[in-house]
Nucleic acid binder design. Sequence first.
DNA 1: AGCTCTGTTCAG
DNA 2: CTGAACAGAGC
Length: 373
Amino acid sequence: MAMHLASMVHGSGRERDAHDHHYQHQPQQPLQQTHYYHQQPQRSYAASHPAHFSTHIPPQHADYQYQRHPQSPPSPPVEEQKPSLPSISSLLHIADGDKPAHETVGQSPKSQSQSQSQHPSPRLRQEQQPGISSMAGAKQQPESRSEQQFSSTIVSHPRMTLPPTPPMHPDSVVDGNQSPSSTSTHSGAGSYYLGQSLNNMEPHQQRQIGAPLGPVKRTSIPQSSMSPYSTSSYAPSPYTSSPGAASAASFYSPEPHPYQMGMYGQRSLPSNFQPQMPLPVPTPSGNGSNPWQHHHYISTSSQSAFPQSQDRYICSTCNKAFSRPSSLRIHSHSHTGEKPYKCPQPGCGKAFSVRSNMKRHERGCHASTTLTT
DNA sequence: AGCTCTGTTCAG
DNA sequence: CTGAACAGAGC
């Protein structure tokens, strides 16, 4: 997938100035987010971008990378862990009334040893369970495994524990709209970036930011979300530091950027997703956010206003909806402070987040120069 | 059908 | 003057 997207993006470009190149890279976020369900959405993104412009790197992206690095080792596993989710469900089952006592009781020693050894395939467990049931005799061990595994897995895996912290983030509010696809897609990336960006900020702040977002006006959005940036502002280097912008960048992301963004897919199958989310439980990094997002996503006011077909792409940072991924991408610049388009005029070092604005600037400010030339 | 690019327009 | 969003055109 990533390949296609990347290729498409590049290929589509017409002019492709140096600026464009920079620009293009970023754009990918949103797309990736939207498209990639399982993995690497951002990954590819981050990977592809790092080399390019130091200046342009959106904070988000930077964040991604950061996030990944720390977790990078785990990140891949994260998805793997997803399987862990099922395990959770199994836990639930147990909790509900699977009679954990019976099975678990006796075999702890063996089961544990086995369970640990088996870590690799949580899913197998579940899958096995059905089989197990049929197995009749074998049941006990498998089930016992599941439970113990949980305990073992949870304990062993920090992540498992981590998720609980973010159980309900502002994300829900912020991304709410987006993410079905995005979140699900990048469990790793999307969730990270959204969550992290938020995480970077204080929970309170995050919520606040997210909440206001909905109604947000143009100005309002940037402000709330921007605040983080403000420190970094456009300064190239700042991005690295600017954790706040989770956009998409999220989008992009992207936002999204996603994102993207992060971020941003929309069309989603609200009903479908919810099932996943139902478990408020310790959803690993990605999952936790998703569930909420889905809920919001469906009901999202912004979307409701428009035909869903229209504003599919939602900024993870400010929740604003856009009908086009490119729009979301550009919008993400407002959060990241990215200004890929620099005024070509020798004396002028101005940069713009929107190409047309840059051109306009040229016309207005440098018109005389251009004319003379 | 979807996306990007460009130009236009609104707002501060 | 600039940032940001929208709409149209083209691919």
